Amino acid sequence: MGRVVCLVGIATANGQAAQQQRPQLAEEVFKNVQIIKGIPVDEFMDTMGMFAAATNMNCVDCHTSDSTESWENFAKETPLKQTARRMLLMVDAINKQNFKGVRSVTCYTCHHGDRRPKQIPSLVVQYSAPIEDPNEIDVFSNAGGLSADQIFAKYLQALGGAERLASLTSFVAKGTYSGYDTDQAKAAIEIYAKAPAQRTTIVHAPFGDSVRVYDGRAAWIASPDKPLPLIPLTGGNLEGAKIEAMVSFPTPIKQAFNQWRVTTTTIDDREVTVLQGTNPRQPPVNFYFDQSGLLVRLVRLADTAIGRVPTQIDYGDYREVSGVKLPFRWTATWTDGQSTTQLTEVQANVSIDAAKFGRPAPAPPPRTK
Rank of each mutant, 00 (worst) to 15 (best):
I202A: 06
I202E: 09
V203T: 14
A205H: 02
A205P: 10
A205Y: 03
G208M: 05
S210H: 14
R212W: 11
R212Q: 14
Y214S: 03
G216S: 02
R217H: 12
R217A: 14
A218N: 09
A218I: 00
W220L: 02
W220A: 01
W220Q: 04
W220H: 01
S223E: 15
P224W: 01
D225M: 14
D225E: 15
K226L: 15
P227T: 01
L228C: 03
P232C: 13
L233N: 13
G235E: 12
G235F: 02
G235R: 13
G235C: 11
G236M: 13
G236W: 08
G236H: 05
N237I: 07
E239L: 13
E239G: 13
K242M: 11
K242T: 06
I243Y: 07
I243T: 11
A245H: 00
A245S: 12
M246P: 08
V247I: 15
V247Q: 12
S248A: 11
F249N: 04
P250F: 02
P250R: 03
T251R: 15
P252I: 00
P252N: 06
I253N: 10
K254F: 10
K254R: 15
K254Y: 11
Q255S: 15
Q255M: 08
F257H: 09
N258L: 08
Q259P: 01
Q259M: 09
W260R: 08
R261F: 07
T263D: 14
T263L: 12
T263H: 10
T265A: 12
I267P: 04
D268R: 11
D268C: 03
D269Y: 07
R270V: 04
E271Y: 03
E271S: 13
V272L: 03
